[in-house]
Design a binder for these strands. Structure first.
Ligand code: NAD
Ligand code: NAD
Lengths: 211, 211
DNA sequence: CGTCATTTGTGATGACTTTCACGGAACAAC
DNA sequence: GTTGTTCCGTGAAAGTCATCACAAATGACG
């Protein structure tokens, strides 16, 4: 069973992180060969109807009366999420956050292979961290081409983020995860996703006060 | 003008991070005294109607024909978001990510005052980082009480996260930002918000492939 | 083969969220 | 005081998303 790009309907935004959670649940259930939407729901905290609906957006992967094949569904989810092959990722900005991300082992296991760090501070260039070398910014183009880098993580100060993103776009990067608290412009075809930790704290503060 | 808790309607989830963005926009517009929903919309990338609707959930803060007072609206947003007073925050798990968060200056400026770090690794206990001391876990109760800690950030391995959260709940923490990729149980009244960076990368991967 | 228990995929419904569009409030100008 | 302009607050409409509930598919069993 494979997922063939269909895209009849639009996919709700919140479906996508749910798919990631479903995938995690499958990884934890190695014993069984078949799993029901009800079981996936229990493991993830969603509802069975939600699970079935989310999966049905992409095709028919289950067997009525039986459930979903764990092995098949894992493969399908990897394909849908685009992590059935490794992404080569560049990390720009080797400061506090950049170093923490680089030192984290988890990403590689999940298909995200940080293959190079970049920084414009000469003191940081040349370092080896977890087997990854830190380069100066003007080597970006060379590496992007050689290693087919199409995803990048941006952990530079807000004031530098737009310039960095422009450089990334210029060397063909198509997907950017940005941690700088600033709204960035990218041309169509390039996807950017922002994580703003201060805003997440504020969201938590709101929840704690009001609900 | 002040925001007095009304809570007639339910607030859409996505309103809250938008309020944070509106607040940021106001910080950047020091010159003007009045600002229109249209201008806030331009600065933040939302629509004017969305801005007005979001603010109207909490009261009437604008003047027809004029706009919103920047000063007043800033105060109102601070109140709504619960960051008009400092939150004392504990950080549990002084590893890669915990250290990066501790070294970041931005949080303090935005009302989140990380006043103590905690770790169960004796080698990390006793360190001073950015003026914040790292304590052993059994000192948590003492500090939580003395410094009225009601918010915590959890950056321990997934396997330890539930135990840590249980301890935090036990000492009266009401709001938890969790970075461990695991679903955590908390009693009612305690708010937990999860940030799962691997899932954010997967979301980006999906976007880059499909849209 | 027929019956039964199970569980998917989906039309229908309802809930939630955003957008539209306008009445009316506010003020400037004359 | 009247007119004109601006722009908020909100009812109504449109759009999006989650849940309900069931027909149909599957296999176990006798
Ligand atoms: N550290 C955190 O916990 C944290 C939390 C929330 C948000 N952020 C955001 O993440 C970003 C990074 O934070 P940080 O604490 O790691 O900052 P940092 O100052 O420690 O690191 C930034 C790095 O980017 C490099 N840099 C600056 N300009 C550059 C350029 N033009 N090209 C390449 N490299 C450049 C610097 O040399 C430095 O190494 C910031 O935007 C910050 O607002 C960080
Ligand atoms: N570092 C990253 O970039 C990154 C990215 C994504 C997710 N995460 C998640 O964030 C968490 C932390 O990641 P990290 O890379 O900083 O890990 P790390 O191993 O560097 O740090 C974890 C710290 O927690 C401490 N710890 C362990 N058990 C504890 C307990 N019971 N009580 C108190 N302290 C305890 C350890 O001593 C260590 O200092 C993990 O759950 C990880 O999956 C991290």
């Amino acid at each position: 069973m494979t997922f063939t790009e269909q895209h009849e309907r639009r996919i709700p935004q919140r479906t996508i992180p749910r798919l990631s959670h479903y995938y995690r649940a499958l990884l934890e259930s190695r014993e069984v060969q078949l799993i029901s939407s009800e079981t996936i729901a229990e493991l993830t905290g969603y509802t069975a109807a939600q699970v079935r609906r989310d999966l049905a957006y992409f095709g028919q992967f289950g067997t009525p009366g039986r459930g979903y094949s764990v092995e098949d569904l894992k493969k399908v989810l990897l394909q849908i999420l685009g992590i059935d092959h490794q992404w080569n990722v560049a990390l720009i900005g080797m400061g506090n956050l950049g170093l923490a991300l680089l030192r984290y082992r988890g990403f590689h296991e999940q298909g995200f292979n940080i293959i190079a760090g970049f920084d414009n501070d000469p003191r940081k260039v040349g370092q080896m961290i977890e087997g990854v070398k830190v380069h100066q910014m003007d080597e970006l183009a060379e590496y992007a081409k050689r290693d087919q880098i199409r995803m990048a993580v941006v952990t530079v100060p807000a004031s530098a983020a737009q310039a960095v993103v422009d450089q990334l776009v210029g060397v063909g990067v198509k997907a950017i995860l940005n941690f700088a608290p600033v709204r960035l412009q990218v041309p169509g075809g390039v996807k950017i996703h922002n994580i703003d930790l201060a805003i997440e704290l504020e969201r938590l503060s709101f929840l704690a006060i009001h609900k």
